[in-house]
């Protein structure tokens, strides 16, 4: 009797220890299993498996029309998987949505919309607190903090249509951050801005990575490999590699063409 009594607690202790261990860094915040998706007869994603751990900074690269944006839309729950399944923070994407901060590739709004930067960023507070009436003072405080974090506080009163590409990206990043996300998802955040600003934005993301898991899509594998911790290459199917493994052979397999790898240090 007594050995079993002794064993039982020690077993549950080791169990709870391993659970606690997996609950910290190694627990996946995004788990994609055997995911398939097609638009009509055109398969975009086939058998995609991807696990992203808490605290990762993952770069998702691949050719145009390789399914990058589609994969993001599936993870965000804007599209539903046709085969396989996705778990975000252990739940279906639609239920985990509000824990995600999303920065789109192209602004999906008209540039001449009569709205200030502050109002745009305030929209990131939707879904927190009461749904009725106007924003609370706490929301405005959070907006100022988010704008300060992306170094764009001075833009708050500006009309959204008057911003440059780089300024707009910072504002969209603030809109994603102000909702207190656990995961930040960015679709080509630097597609429309010049390279110096691109570097600034990735420096900013690297700082944010201290508290957030980040998934960033880019077509520029050479550039992002200097910042991200891991690169996932997507062209209908997925091949995962560490940053160091990005070489000519991989690029060739991915793009079916010779791509000149640009060596650069950060």
């Amino acid at each position: 009797m007594s050995p079993t009594l002794h064993q039982a607690p020690s077993q549950s202790l080791s169990q709870s220890l391993s659970q606690a261990g997996s609950g910290s860094l190694s627990q996946p915040v995004i788990a994609v299993e055997n995911l398939g998706f097609s638009y009509g007869d055109n398969p975009v994603l086939v058998g995609v498996d991807l696990v992203i751990a808490a605290g990762e900074f993952l770069g998702l690269v691949g050719p145009n029309a390789g399914g990058k944006s589609t994969l993001l839309k599936l993870i965000l729950g804007l599209l539903a998987p046709q085969t396989g399944r996705i778990r975000v923070l252990g739940r279906p994407p639609r239920e985990a949505r509000r824990q995600l901060g999303y920065v789109p590739q192209y602004p999906t709004f008209p540039r001449d919309f009569p709205i200030s930067v502050e109002q745009v960023v305030l929209m990131g507070r939707l879904g927190l607190g009461s749904q009725l009436g106007w924003y609370r003072p706490a929301d405005r405080v959070a907006v100022r903090a988010a704008l300060a974090e992306v170094e764009a506080l001075d833009l708050a009163p500006r009309r959204i249509g008057t911003l440059s590409g780089g300024q707009l990206q910072r504002v969209l990043l603030a809109r994603a951050l102000v909702g207190e996300p656990r995961i930040l998802i960015l679709d080509e955040p630097t597609a429309n801005i010049d390279q110096r600003v691109e570097g600034d934005i990735f420096e900013l993301l690297a700082r944010l990575n201290a508290r957030l898991t980040i998934l960033v899509v880019s077509h520029d594998i050479a550039f992002i490999s200097g910042y991200v911790k891991r690169v996932a290459c997507l062209n209908r199917t997925l091949i995962c590699h560490r940053t160091e493994a990005v070489d000519g052979d991989l690029l060739h397999r991915l793009y079916h063409a010779d791509v000149r790898a640009v060596a650069h240090g950060h």
């Binding site: 804007l78 949505r97 999906t108 709004f109 745009v120 929209m123 939707l126 879904g127 924003y135």
Partner: peptide
């Protein structure tokens, strides 16, 4: 409009983002 000003603004401005915020 007064009760749901934020939601109408979000839906008019950016439907995709509004959906992601649970509107």
């Amino acid at each position: 409009v007064a009760l749901f000003y934020r939601q109408f603004l979000a839906v008019s401005f950016d439907e995709e983002f509004a959906r992601l915020r649970g509107v």
